[in-house]
Simulated assay, not measured.
Amino acid sequence: MTQPVTTLETTLETLAALADDKILAVNHRHGDEHAVNLTKLRAVAKDLKKNQPLAVELWNFEDSAARLLSLLICKPKEFCAADLDRMLREARTPKITDWLLNYVVKKHPQWDELRLLWLDDSNPDIAAAGWSLNTFAITKKLKVLDIDQLLNIIESEMKTAASRLQWSMNECLAQIGIKLPDHRARALDIGERLEVLKDYPTPPNCTSPFAPIWINKMVKRENS
């Protein structure tokens, strides 16, 4: 017996049935717009399997839950770089942006070209994506980076950067300190002097995003 064809309409009906106003209210506080529990969303994606045509349809529908599902069932290499650039600019919310970068862009053969393109963008949210790819490059393809130049930019610009861009630059600073021992002392010094995210509220048993604490804790863990 053949399996029924999955259509955009039936998939949207599934997402609508899973929508929960309480989840939406929580997500709104974080700048997100989806009303579907992400564990349940992943279960839907597992049932659908990879389906690039449906993924494109879901993305173009412009609903946040539909776009998150799209990113789970798409085939990253079937997008061109221009598609991914457009999608980043359409992403709107932190969760969609995060999943787009981690589940799609980082698996695309042109991720480094996109990194350079986005770093030069005047929109701080787009530039933040470029900095996230700088962090990715530290472990994926270190040779494309000039670490001293990155530290110079962080030192001069991170303190006054817009929030999402500041967060991405701070993550890059921390990973430089964690992964690159030759640059660790300077990374720690920059973090101590700039004090970015020093007072960020951190739940118990979680690592502070303040770079010096983050670096020292991870280095200690790796060396233990």
Rank of each mutant, 00 (worst) to 15 (best):
L116H: 11
W111M: 02
P212C: 05
I147K: 00
A211C: 02
E90G: 11
A82G: 07
S70A: 12
A129P: 03
P94C: 03
N134V: 15
F136L: 12
K106L: 08
I190V: 13
K75N: 12
E192A: 06
V196D: 05
K198P: 01
L151Q: 07
V144A: 05
Q149H: 15
F79Y: 14
R184S: 02
E171C: 14
P124Q: 10
T135L: 13
N205D: 13
A162C: 02
G130K: 08
R86I: 14
D146S: 11
K179M: 15
K140T: 11
P204H: 10
D112T: 11
L133W: 10
I126G: 06
P109T: 07
S70F: 02
K140M: 13
D85Y: 07
L69R: 00
A185L: 11
P203T: 03
N134W: 00
D199I: 04
S208V: 01
A137T: 08
S208C: 04
C74E: 03
V144E: 06
I147C: 00
W111L: 08
S208A: 03
P201D: 05
Y200E: 10
G130L: 04
V144G: 06
T202R: 05
N152E: 14
A187R: 01
S70H: 05
I154P: 00
E195T: 07
K159G: 07
N123S: 11
P109H: 11
D199W: 06
E155F: 09
H108C: 02
R186L: 10
L145Y: 01
A128D: 06
N134S: 12
W111Y: 09
E155V: 06
E157W: 07
P109Y: 10
I73H: 00
T139C: 09
D148E: 14
E78A: 08
I96A: 08
D125V: 08
I190C: 03
D182G: 08
P76N: 01
I178A: 06
L197K: 13
M169T: 02
L151T: 00
W118N: 05
E155R: 13
M169K: 06
P109A: 03
Q166M: 14
P109I: 04
V196F: 04
P94Y: 00
P201A: 05
S168W: 04
V104H: 03
I126N: 10
V104K: 03
A91K: 04
N123C: 11
K77G: 10
T207L: 15
P204D: 15
R193V: 03
W118P: 07
T97M: 12
A81P: 01
L117K: 12
K75R: 10
A185K: 12
Q110T: 00
A185P: 01
L165F: 08
L188D: 01
L71N: 01
P181A: 10
